[in-house]
Design a binder for these strands. Structure first.
Lengths: 225, 225
DNA sequence: ATTTAGGGTTAGATGGGGCTAAATCAAGTG
DNA sequence: CACTTGATTTAGCCCCATCTAACCCTAAAT
């Protein structure tokens, strides 16, 4: 049996691996989970003992297959919960993350299955993030890329808004940046800020680099393949 | 902030108090929660420090007003979850308890409110147990009494089936003993076993004293007041 | 009033998860 | 190629919830 905290570490390592392709460093995990480095080190010891991470001292960790499966299970729970809360319990897009974060460790296989049934086996959550399938096979890397990769004049469709901060998400929703909307890129500033026009709102919206980075979009043509 | 485990202790003490009117003994709590007595003693120390129980060493505890409020909150969560799971997620009467037990500590006020809304502010759970109101005022003692208090020939309505064992509940459901059904008492054996005929099934059903004790019923006349 | 049975409490250990301070390693710099 | 810098690990501590073993209190029985 794994503790909630261990599941959180595995999930964090998984998410960090999606971003970098490199071994994950102690300090990155510490920052992600808001704990100190020594705490991370000692937890990595335990995860290594259980065969959930591959570790090279002083050089970071990667998940083993088993560790990845656990991470995918937790993420499946999380995203199913987010979807269920928005669709059946009237939750707002911005507030589901926190609730799902607490519940994800405490639902049974049975609960997971019933929620998935109620939603008709969904494949994405309300933020456009892919929900791992029930078999917990590592999912494909999704289409599209960060909106920061595009240029003035490009027209793109928002695929995913991966930010976890409720305030940021509320702001984005208010300014028409949600999965499914069309954005026309107006400007990409040298310091990374993206300004765009949403098909959903009048006026424009500007996103600092740190926010824009979490907005994954695809060119319409790319989608049709 | 209270830990999950502290909440469990307060809930257990509350439930035990409903049954006895006396101070609750260490050993009773230990049995209820399946831990050893020393473990209970040390937890009672902590609960006393926080003003949640009144304690007399060697003589047991009672809940303070504050402790009772916490217990009621947990029980409200538990019973709302049970009701929600059966009504909206296709759970069976018998299997909700376990799931609710794990989730009850991890839902927010917001979640509680949305679930209560979805169920239209229910007042009883699927077992007929009263759901504490949102203000967490100590509820009235419900009508009726244990079916063991009745006699051959009495006709009663089942109000509550308070057993927590899934196997027992399945058995009872299969034999027509659920909240709302009418029972005609056929026999009360000297060792406490109750035999009855359910309005819901052919044949009779016999309940050993330990099970019958958890079946609260009311005489039809009593209900109409 | 003394004894005794049985439960309650104290003592001390364990494992989980966290911290700070000190030591150590990896890498880039002079 | 030695050195400095910055991150990582080790060492040692804390609190929580649990256990077993040992001790002690209460109440009932003699």
């Amino acid at each position: 049996m794994l503790s909630d905290v261990m599941e959180d570490y595995l999930k964090a390592i998984y998410q960090l691996q999606r971003e970098t392709d490199e071994r994950i460093k102690t300090s990155a995990i510490a920052e992600e989970l808001d704990v100190t480095s020594p705490t991370v080190t000692s937890m990595l010891d335990k995860l290594e003992d259980r065969g959930l991470v591959d570790r090279e001292k002083y050089r970071g960790v990667t998940l083993t297959g088993e560790g990845e499966t656990v991470a995918l299970e937790v993420i499946r729970h999380h995203r199913l919960l987010e979807a269920y809360l928005t669709e059946h319990l009237d939750y707002d897009w911005a507030e589901v993350h926190e609730e799902a974060d607490r519940l994800e460790h405490h639902i049974s296989e049975n609960f997971e299955a019933r929620v998935a049934d109620a939603l008709d086996q969904p494949t994405v959550d309300p933020h456009g993030s892919p929900i791992p399938s029930a078999d917990l096979e590592p999912p494909e890397r999704p289409d599209g890329e960060s909106v920061t990769e595009f240029e003035e004049g490009d027209v793109v469709i928002v695929e995913e808004v991966a930010d976890r901060d409720a305030e940021v998400l509320s702001y984005l929703a208010d300014h028409g940046v949600e999965p499914g909307v069309e954005l026309e890129i107006i400007e990409v500033a040298p310091f990374g800020m993206v300004t765009a026009r949403s098909s959903d709102r009048d006026g424009t919206v500007s996103l600092p680099e740190s926010v824009a980075h979490h907005v994954r979009v695809a060119a319409p043509a790319e989608i049709e393949q």
